[in-house]
Design a binder for these strands. Structure first.
Lengths: 186, 186
DNA sequence: TGTAATAAAATACACTGTGTTCTGTATCTA
DNA sequence: TAGATACAGAACACAGTGTATTTTATTACA
């Protein structure tokens, strides 16, 4: 990728996340982003068709970073690896913490819905296959419950409670969920 | 309130919820609502300043209905009443089921965030004081977890799993949460 | 039932933000 | 260095918003 492209893309991303700290997503105009990023109008539209596409691109960017190691270590699932599920979750929390500055703006306001939906999609892959069998309650529901429980935990954490460590947060979450998750270490 | 006002207000609400079944909130224009409701442009703006305010008004409308009995029976909390907490929750689910048609449109898409936030606010009042004490985990977190767990359960229910009964749904939820909630019946 | 108040309809308008087109300039890559 | 590509700036058509004005219809109430 051209260095110029990388620079403008980074400028747009930076401007966008900065502005989201001050203004809400819906009240944010493309012109605002252009001014903040200090680029030409045409340039923005050369990179992104709409403000929504920019939002999606930023989410992709973040989650690709957060879950990159997760994807690489998927073969650790089966008995050979040493990472417990809780360790993997804690690991994800560490990566989320790195991107905290960007994420906090994405969580508050109207774009929180889009971010969270994106987040959940990734989490479904992580959580699927980790649930203890239970004949009485639909698997469908239990997966949804576990995933959104964790997603909401992260939201709670990164919005006003970011003084907790990743270990503490995963501790809180697993204090509730561990009985429903397979512990592969036993 | 003037009969004419009630009629147009109802027409706008109806048009809005109908359109949300077909189009997303952000792509929905005020003009669309005006056309669907078959009213004059000025009339819409005499009732609501913006599309967002209309959304909030509809949410208020729904939750006022759903939680009206809940508010009235708040004095049942203290030992005199016969309703267990699970019964109260089931009761709320019945009211939500009545409004299902309107709600399903509000849940999908970008306005889901606003609806859910509204929903949570009401739920905080319902759940507060129902949690079992636990010194290790912040009360703050546990309340957030219980509330969003239930809110997400409702979302799951009314989006593609509405064939379950309110009793079944509250059964699913309490199968997970009951250990953390005070059972006032014992 | 007649009347004053008020809601709605119709039309026109200014305004904001969007997305595109064009031309000239700067920067990268081979 | 040459050709390609990205960027800047200005101008533009367009859609949607919100308001103002006038006229018509409906309502509440004495």
């Amino acid at each position: 990728m051209d260095r110029r492209q990388r620079k403008t893309r980074a400028a747009i991303f930076g401007a966008f996340t900065n502005l989201l700290q001050r203004k809400s997503y819906s009240s944010l105009t493309v012109q605002d982003i252009i001014d903040e990023a200090d680029i030409g109008r045409t340039t923005f539209y050369a990179h992104f068709e709409t403000k929504d596409e920019l939002l999606r691109a930023i989410c992709s960017d973040i989650f690709e970073h957060v879950f990159s190691h997760e994807i690489l270590s998927e073969d650790k699932h089966d008995f050979t690896g040493h990472d417990s599920f809780q360790d993997r979750i804690t690991h994800i929390l560490y990566h989320l913490q790195e991107k905290q500055q960007s994420i906090s703006g994405l969580l508050s306001g109207e774009c929180g819905e889009i971010f969270m939906r994106y987040f959940r999609e990734y989490l479904y892959n992580v959580f699927d296959g980790e649930l203890v069998d239970d004949g009485n309650i639909p698997h469908d529901y239990r997966l949804h419950h576990a995933v959104s429980g964790f997603a909401e935990t992260v939201r709670w954490w990164l919005q006003g409670h970011s003084d907790y460590t990743p270990e503490e947060i995963s501790g809180f979450y697993f204090a509730f969920e561990s009985s429903r998750l397979i512990d592969r270490e036993i």
